[in-house]
């Protein structure tokens, strides 16, 4: 039996999830898993998305969560989510069985500036699970490699065992005009890569602030630190983009939870140019 959904009426609510069949669950790290979700009905596939957007995923009887889409935007027919198990609902999501059904709403929110930045160099700075919402942007640039200049990816995680998509990161480094540097906060002797916060990697790359757009996602403290570093290197705030995270219950600006000063992260974001979100991100307990 497949999930049956009421036909959409004129007044169908965006609050009602579509059925999504969990096609594949893949373990990325000790606490992070990647889910591939498909429509159970081939005739009505799940909606496509823009890199940087998120979905609301509903687990039967447990709750609903905003989850960034981490897959290739041009791979239609399925949506990919990389989820870190940190609470009841994320735990329920990452332990869902292949073939089970979850609810999917969306995609919602703004996306990375991939149209505006054609011809420019791109600097991607990711921390921890923050690589997940940036991965679709990287996929896009690699598929359309000629449309963009240099691509530099800087990625920081807590320790080597927390690094996501390690094989992919290594492979991207071989793509022409593409550089990937990875660092961890702490590493054992078997880790021969960089150790230190992600900003320490700036010493090893060459970027031209006048022709580069930066896209950042990670813990807020890391993003603030990266922005300071970029500005000291002459990046204008308009060429720095950040993806913010706040409590979100509805994704459509109705629940009020995701506010950051005048901004609703769900509908004005999650991707913001730095000059819009920077002043609010710097405020403690805003």
């Amino acid at each position: 039996m497949s999930a049956v959904l009421c036909p959409p009426s004129a007044d169908v609510s965006v609050m009602r999830p579509a059925a999504g069949r969990v096609a594949r669950v893949e373990k990325e790290t000790h606490d992070t898993f990647t889910l591939r979700v498909e429509s159970p009905d081939e005739a009505s596939p799940l909606a496509g998305f823009e890199p940087g957007q998120f979905s609301m995923l509903y687990v039967y009887g447990v709750g609903e969560l905003p989850i960034s889409i981490s897959g290739d935007p041009e791979e239609r027919g399925s949506l990919v989510y990389t989820i870190r198990s940190v609470g009841a609902a994320t735990h329920a999501l990452v332990t869902s069985k292949e073939g089970s059904t979850i609810g999917v709403r969306g995609p919602f929110g703004t996306s990375w500036p991939l149209r505006e930045t054609r011809g420019r160099d791109l600097l991607v700075v990711a921390g921890g699970i923050g690589l997940a919402p940036l991965r679709p942007a990287i996929f896009h640039v690699l598929r359309h490699r000629g449309d963009y200049g240099r691509l530099v990816v800087l990625y920081g995680a807590r320790s080597p065992k927390d690094l996501l998509f390690r094989k992919q990161l290594a492979a991207w480094n071989y793509v022409p005009d593409t550089q990937v540097l990875t660092t961890v906060d702490y590493g054992g002797l078997s880790w021969r890569g960089y150790v230190g916060v992600v900003t320490t990697l700036f010493r090893y790359i060459r970027i031209r602030p006048d022709r580069t757009t930066a896209m950042i996602c990670g813990p807020e403290v890391m993003m603030r630190f990266v922005v300071t570093e970029l500005k000291s290197r002459g990046f204008p705030a308009e060429q720095i983009y950040l993806s913010a995270e706040r409590n979100m219950k509805c994704a459509i600006g109705h629940c009020g939870h995701c506010q950051m000063g005048p901004l609703f992260v769900c509908k004005d974001g999650p991707v913001f140019p730095c000059h819009r979100i920077g002043p609010w991100m710097d405020r403690y307990e805003l």
Binding site: R84, G128, I129, D185, E220, M222
Partner: peptide, 13 residues
Amino acid sequence: VQVLDMYSPGVKG
């Protein structure tokens, strides 16, 4: 920044 252990759940900027 490193000692903040910012990638741990519950650590807020």
